[in-house]
Design a protein around this nucleic acid. Structure first.
Lengths: 211, 211
DNA sequence: GGGGGCGTGAAACGAGCGTTTCAATCATGC
DNA sequence: GCATGATTGAAACGCTCGTTTCACGCCCCC
């Protein structure tokens, strides 16, 4: 037995393989071979393949959401936070808790895969429920001049930016001609916060002005 | 043989079932039964399951991208388009070519599923290559006051908004407390354009101002 | 009106899957 | 040092999957 326990090696291998090759395309035989353990270890430590992938996501998402809420607590204890402060509290924990862009990419790909499944066993969204509620309220307070319904729409647009932007490093490289990389966490954070702040604060669409 | 051909019924059933239950979770036996045809019809008309899902996506995406490019052609023929015009040319074809929010949701879920696979057979992104190149250039021209590298970053943030915002009707309903629905195409378009325009035009992040 | 090929039906193939079983092994506290 | 529970190893189970095969019907055109 090597340094990390079997359970942790299973989580590590599952995170990497599920993210890179896909959940359905990765068999538990490849996975346990990659982790250097027996096939039955999955059943013993997690029960099923579905419980394993949920545990993989939860291991990454839970600390991020806890730090998000802690930062928001700190901000609101100090007064009424600016929009950019709330945005940084929401985005920074995701980027800064991972070593490089590849780590964020893996979590994003895992999340996206679970998002497109409707299996009742895979209720990953409950991990975000309390965080979502708290931050929706914070955004409403930070945007008093914007119609709340418009804020709801814009939060709906904001979620995909945070969840999906770093899910494919090639896309960023292709679109930017190689000039941008998610490995520069600080720059990525600054760009995302300025983009989201601009979108959330934009002039509201006029009633009939779509054409 | 009923009105739509077997091939079209296969595409219809595949679009619905792949989107609702997931590509991997839908067997060709369920699918052909839903379409009211024989299992071998998939092999006969498409060859493999992968070729089928690609055909499903292409049937919806190709007309959208063609209309995007046609609208951009028309805009550029008439002069130098405003940012909002380019955004509408990009977003409107997706929303207006589908009857309701559920249709957009299906296409979005299909696209997201294929995005998280790295199978070389599923090169769905080639469908977007020419459209992406043309629109990147158009956004750069419409944003002469913004550093091009910043524009690249912001286009990277924009793609997820368009691709994922309507992929889950429940998310929109939950976040908005039921006040927003993607079935109102015109309103959804106006909100998305204003959000994206605000994000793309936002003040650029200062060099050291991330903390 | 008969021939040719396009489309369909029923059935089977072979492989790979997640899961389960159960005995062997290890660590640990008495 | 031994009993006990936790963990691992090897093997098999039962099932479902995508794919393939091949014979049959239908329709159109000569």
């Amino acid at each position: 037995m090597s340094d990390p326990s079997t359970k942790e090696r299973l989580l590590d291998s599952a995170e990497r393989l599920f993210a890179e090759r896909g959940y359905a395309a990765t068999s538990l035989r490849e996975l346990t071979q990659d982790a250097g353990c027996n096939l039955a270890a999955v059943n013993y430590h997690f029960g099923t393949k579905e419980a394993l992938v949920l545990a993989v996501l939860e291991r990454r998402v839970r600390p991020v959401n806890e730090e998000r809420l802690a930062r928001l607590d700190a901000l609101e204890a100090a007064g009424t936070p600016q929009l950019e402060d709330v945005l940084r509290a929401f985005v920074a924990p995701l980027l800064e808790r991972h070593r490089d862009g590849a780590a964020v990419e893996r979590v994003a790909r895992l999340f996206l895969q679970l998002s497109t499944m409707r299996d009742p066993e895979l209720q990953h969204y409950r991990l975000f429920q309390s965080t979502a509620t708290r931050f929706v309220a914070a955004f409403l307070r930070a945007l008093p001049e914007v119609d709340p319904v418009t804020v709801y729409w814009r939060i709906t647009f904001m979620i995909p930016v945070v969840a999906m932007s770093f899910s494919d490093a090639e896309r960023l490289a292709f679109l930017s001609g190689g000039t941008a990389s998610a490995d520069d966490t600080e720059r990525a954070l600054a760009h995302m916060v300025s983009f989201l702040a601009g979108g959330l604060r934009a002039p509201e669409p006029t009633a009939g002005g779509a054409a």
